[in-house]
Nucleic acid binder design. Structure first.
Lengths: 339, 339
DNA sequence: GTGAAAGCGCTAACAT
DNA sequence: ATGTTAGCGCTTTCAC
C-alpha cells in the first residue's frame, strides 16, 4: 500500500518526524519554507498518512455501523443512501450489515460492529427483538448510539422516527376528504409498533369525522405481503360491497388489494379508493398509480447520522445531553388510486 | 470503549505482555496453567483486543469497500446483501458507498476507500466512466480489486458478470418458443455494454430461428425508465399491430410497455407477450406477473467477495494469479406475461 | 515456559 | 521554528 511514511520523508529532508507532521497538518509553528518543502515532497511521493496509526493514536476510526433488518428493501436501502451520503460529508464511512429481522443475529451483528471499534452505531430493531439488554449494553459502554424507524420506548437513547399515528390519520383523512364513507383497513397482526400506531391513526381519523369504527372491515393479514393484501381485497369484493375506501398499512398490501379489485372489475378510485403507506418505488408504477404516505428514508438516514455525529462530538467533549427523539414529517401523496 | 488492555492484564497477573498475548492467542509455548489464568481474567474483565493496534501491526483492516452506481436499486441492494453476508463468514466487514453513476464521484469514492486502507475493493462502474486511469491506479498500487456487473474489457482484473448476450438470447428464444413471430425489442441507447450485449443476444436468437431482423421494431428509449417503456409500448400499439412479442432490456421498461398495452386493451400474453430483464422484485407483482430473466445479484455479490478474498490471500502469500472472469448463469423466469 | 525489547506510523507535550 | 521523546496497544523475535 502506501510505502512512504512520515519517517521516510523526515529522513530524506533531514528533519524530525514531528516537524514533518506539523508541516503536513498545517500547524502554525513551522516556517512556511519548510512547510512548502515538506508538502512538495509529500505530494511528489504521493504520501498518504497511515490511517491505522492515526486510528491507534486518536482511538477513533471515522467509521460508523449501520444495522438494519433487511438490506433488500426499498425503504431501508433509502436509509443506507441517506446515511452514507451524509456520513461522507462529515468524513465518515459506513459499515452496513443486516439482522434479517432476527434477534439473535442482531446481537451478533452488534458485537461484530463493536469488535471493529466503530465510532457509533445506527440500529433499526429486528421484528422479534423484545428484550434489550444487548442494546443497553452497547449504550452503557458509552458507544454513541441512535435508533431509527423501528425503535423501542424501553431504550433510552437518541431516536429518529416518523409519527405513524399522525401519518395514518392523514392517510385516512385523505380518503374521507375525497368522499369515502366506509373505509376498511388492511394491516398485519399487532406485533410491530408501526402497525399498532397506524391502526390507531386510522381509528382516530374515523372518530374525528364522526364515522363509526366497524370491526368487520378491520382486516388482519398474515403478514405485510402482496398476497395478504390480495386476500383481503378479495374478501372486500365478495362480502363488503359497501366499502368505498381502503387504507393499507403498507404499499405492498395496498397493491395486493388493487390487484383483487381489478380482478373483480371494481373501478379504482371511482368505486373504491385505495391508499397505501411508505411510498415505495413501485407505488409509482402500479395501475392506477397508488396514493400513499411518503416515509422519507433518505431524510431519516440523514437525521440519524447527524444525531449520531452530535453524540460523538459530545462524547469527545464530555458533554452529556439528554436523549431526544426527532420526528420526521410525512406527507400524503395523492395519485390515481384516490379521487 | 474497551478500557482493559493487554498491559493491564499483564500487570494484574504479574507477567509480561508477551506471555499474556501468547496465552490469549493460543500459542503452544505457554503452560496451560498460565493460559487458563490469563483467559479467565480476560473473560472476567471482558477484555477485547484493541483492533486499531492490531490493524497497525498487521497492516490490514478486515474491511473491504463496496462501491456501486446506485444503492437504492433492487439489483444493487441485492449485491450489498450478497457481499455483506459472505464477507461476514470470512470475518470481514463492508463499507458501502455509491457513485450516483458519476465518473467524478467514482474517482472520489475510490480515493476515500483507499484512505480508509480497506483490504480490497469491489466496484461496478459508473455509466459515464469511459476512462480508467483511476481504476488502474488502484490496481497498480496492489490493492486487491474486483469488478462486478458493470465491467470494462480495458481493465485487467478479476471480474464477475452475467452473460448478457446469452441471457437476452434465451429471453428472445422463450418468446419464440411460446409462439411469437414478430418480436420487438425495447432498449435504451447503445451506451452501456449491457444494452449492447442484450441487443446482440436478441438478434442472435432471431437469426438462429430464421426470423428476419426488422429495424422498424427495434425501439430506442431515452433511458431505462418506466416511461421510456410506456412510450414505446404506445408506439407499438398504434403503429405496429403485427408485433406479438416484446423483449425489453429492463423490467422497468417492460412494465412501462405492459401499461401501454393495458391502456390500449391489448391482451397480454394472448395478443402480445412481454418479457423483461433482471427479475426485480416488482416484476412479481405486476398484472400480469412479468416473465423475465433472473439476474442473481446475491450470487454475483457472493462470488465477487470470494474472488476478492482469494486475491487478498494471494497477495499475502506473494502469489500472482492471472485475472479471471466468472460468469454467473442466468435463467428465464416464465410468468404470466408470456404464454 | 517466560520475558525483554523492538517496532508498526503517527501525534503532541515539552524542550530548546 | 525545530527537535526530542514518549506513547497509543498489540505482536513477534530472540534471549534466557
Amino acid at each position: 500500500m502506501s510505502k512512504v511514511s512520515l519517517t521516510k520523508i523526515s529522513e530524506i529532508l533531514g528533519m524530525s518526524k514531528s516537524t514533518v507532521s506539523k508541516a503536513l497538518n498545517n500547524y502554525t509553528d513551522v516556517s512556511s519554507s519548510t512547510r512548502k518543502k515538506v508538502q512538495d515532497l509529500a505530494n511528489k511521493l504521493n504520501y498518504k498518512p497511515n490511517i491505522f496509526a492515526q486510528n491507534l493514536r486518536s482511538q477513533e476510526s471515522k467509521i460508523i455501523g449501520l444495522l438494519m433488518p433487511e438490506i433488500v428493501h426499498y425503504f431501508f436501502s433509502t436509509i443506507i443512501s441517506g446515511v452514507t451520503e451524509t456520513a461522507e460529508k462529515y468524513g465518515y464511512s459506513v459499515i452496513v450489515a443486516q439482522t434479517k429481522d432476527d434477534y439473535k443475529s442482531e446481537i451478533k451483528q452488534l458485537e461484530l460492529l463493536l469488535d471493529k471499534n466503530v465510532d457509533g452505531i445506527l440500529l433499526s430493531l429486528a421484528d422479534n427483538t423484545i428484550q434489550f439488554n444487548h442494546v443497553k449494553g452497547v449504550i452503557n459502554q458509552g458507544v454513541p448510539f441512535v435508533l431509527y424507524d423501528r425503535i423501542s420506548k424501553l431504550i433510552d437513547c437518541n431516536k429518529v422516527v416518523i409519527d405513524d399515528v399522525k401519518a395514518a390519520e392523514m392517510a385516512t383523512q385523505h380518503l374521507i376528504d375525497t368522499g369515502c364513507k366506509k373505509i376498511a383497513i388492511i394491516r398485519n397482526q399487532f406485533k410491530s409498533q408501526g402497525t399498532i400506531d397506524r391502526h390507531k391513526g386510522y381509528k382516530k381519523a374515523l372518530l374525528e369525522n364522526g364515522i363509526v369504527y366497524d370491526k368487520s372491515i378491520d382486516f388482519e393479514g398474515q403478514d405485510f405481503s402482496f398476497n395478504a393484501g390480495k386476500i383481503v381485497g378479495n374478501k372486500i369484493c365478495e362480502r363488503h360491497k359497501d366499502v368505498d375506501g381502503i387504507f393499507a398499512v403498507t404499499d405492498l398490501m395496498a397493491i395486493g388489494a388493487l390487484e383483487a379489485l381489478k380482478e373483480h372489475n371494481v373501478a379504482v378510485p371511482n368505486q373504491v379508493s385505495v391508499i397505501g403507506f411508505s411510498n415505495w418505488f413501485l407505488s409509482q408504477i402500479t395501475t392506477p398509480h397508488l396514493s400513499t404516505v411518503d416515509q422519507p428514508g433518505f431524510e431519516i438516514g440523514q437525521t440519524a447520522f447527524k444525531l449520531l455525529h452530535q453524540e460523538i462530538q459530545n462524547n469527545k467533549n464530555n458533554i452529556k445531553e439528554p436523549s431526544k427523539t426527532v420526528v420526521i414529517p410525512t406527507t400524503v401523496i395523492s395519485r390515481e388510486s384516490t379521487k
